[in-house]
Nucleic acid binder design. Sequence first.
DNA 1: ACAAAAAATGTGCTCGAACACACCTTAAAA
DNA 2: TTTTAAGGTGTGTTCGAGCACATTTTTTGT
Lengths: 346, 346
Amino acid sequence: MDKKYTIKDIAKLAGVSKGTVDRVLHKRGKVSPLALEKVNEVLKVIDYEPNLIARNLKNNKIYRICIVLPDPKIDPYWLPCLNGIDDAAKEFNAYNLVIETFYFNPEKKKSFLKTNETVLGLSPDAVLLAPLFHKETVDVIEEYHSLNIIVNTFNNQVESSFVKSFVGQDLFRSGRVAAKLLDSITDKGQIAIVHIDETYKNAIHMQEKERGFRNYFEEIENSDYTITTLKLKNPNVEISFNNFLNENPDVSGIFITTSKAYQIAKILSAFKLKKIGVVAYDLINENVTYLNQGVIDFMIHQNQKRQAYLGITSLVEYFLFQKEIPEMILLPIDIVNAENAEYYIE
Amino acid sequence: MDKKYTIKDIAKLAGVSKGTVDRVLHKRGKVSPLALEKVNEVLKVIDYEPNLIARNLKNNKIYRICIVLPDPKIDPYWLPCLNGIDDAAKEFNAYNLVIETFYFNPEKKKSFLKTNETVLGLSPDAVLLAPLFHKETVDVIEEYHSLNIIVNTFNNQVESSFVKSFVGQDLFRSGRVAAKLLDSITDKGQIAIVHIDETYKNAIHMQEKERGFRNYFEEIENSDYTITTLKLKNPNVEISFNNFLNENPDVSGIFITTSKAYQIAKILSAFKLKKIGVVAYDLINENVTYLNQGVIDFMIHQNQKRQAYLGITSLVEYFLFQKEIPEMILLPIDIVNAENAEYYIE
DNA sequence: ACAAAAAATGTGCTCGAACACACCTTAAAA
DNA sequence: TTTTAAGGTGTGTTCGAGCACATTTTTTGT
């Protein structure tokens, strides 16, 4: 019962050679109806699982996976991804894999295109992409596809039938989670949705979060809340937001859709009049400091590290073990407060 | 640059045979200083990683891992573990592994001992244990150890030097997380810690959570809260708790340390006077219903599925790829509200 | 100096799947 | 009838690490 069956075992049981068994298993043809029958009979009885180890030993192709993402030195949001990539690389470094990371400047379309040009030149087997510029991304993906390079995306979703897989979060739902949290910690009054430095590149992000956020409150009947959207731009964030607070003394909650919550938190901690509930994104150091000080109440964790990690592992397992790549992996929307934050910081 | 180096490559580069390289790599001795020098010289320059696939092909030992946990039919808390076990089994079923699950009756020490007796009889390579009865567990672990069977534990920690690894949560911290949540959603008044059906078997659990919970509030200066501990026992939970509510109209928050929050929630939803904040454990169906209804505000997810999964995978990777088994894996303390619950239900 | 023991080194086989290739058979085409 | 193609079957090699064993070289003791 214990022993795993091998092709040789099946051959012996069926009274044929392992070559024949192999042809049956791979449907390569050139098998007589009699032999086919005999082998199938055996296969029906026993539970054959090919030994992945042996299978892969022979297949000594080197798979090359390229990861393309914004430069974390320019936008630290992407920093945790490096750890995820690292983890995956370490986990699989005994296999014939080359995992390479390429950065582009998130503020420059040209940089994005140039980086992808470089990657194309390497003709990898797959690319894991963090797409920012919509039109350009679609074009680039098509190019990859035409060269038979598999494209997976993470963090940002792109409408393209050539994308094999997406790893990320449901941002609409994420907005709802934030809304529920603010609803839990505030009583009534005005709630502000704050977008900081909204640019074309992540506008969809923020909009989806806002949609979800508003959707939650719309579903509540006779709600005591009024919701305002604020679009702030550096370097005027401080002045604009201070003005807003002074003009709206009934503000009871704030939802910040980007990782720049610390800018708002800084102003709020000076503004000691009354407790305002704050929900924001991303566990970067500055934000965690204000979380620990109680200025920020909850953060939502986008789990970039795991996004990158899962994006890679699904590709590796596809190449190495011909596992199917799931079309979409939606990560949990982790709620973080000062007490459980340490488990998510990466 | 791409090609992975093999032992043969090293042998050629060093001008020795692969046998010698092998002896150097495995420190098997019988190598002349000169040959050692030559091989080490090569190893210094190149980056050799043995091919795990090839290594494991030869090693056709079948590893047997037994998982021992309370019968989920008796205590549904353990149900998600089965999914975790299943996932791990599926992931590794191409390898020479036998993963078997054994249940015991969580209310009966005898059953626990008998199940372990059975497992001992199979002389597996490792056992993953969800320990309940402290003294008995320690004895059983010692017995496993004396037979050279590796013992990993999950969910509950046991003080024993023979345990190789523990996967679970920091319960003290978990209590603090709950406290922080209640602090966020309630203003002032009395807070009740409710233990339901506390028995010897999970008393330590509840106590640790309570310690953490109280610790949080002790750290807050001039806190507006008073904290009471309630120990309720079925079938009197309903009556006792109703009495408590009537006698204590200033109750503003409740922390339920077991998965039986639904019993309390049921009473509270009848008791419509004012909103009482509720934080509880475990995403079982009954609890999620009350979470969605808004009776329970937050749940803390103990992630049993992942506990079991990680407990197994660390063993498998130890046997198959001689990875080290981490002494302790502390899972994140996931905060769940009605909006993000779906991602954690398993 | 020479045999015997010890040390050092190299060779060759194994694991299981995959596939190339050689071989044999039968049927169709010349 | 002979040639050729197609159908069917089995054998043998490969992948890389690991280890048993054979072979060669060096050391030791007499």
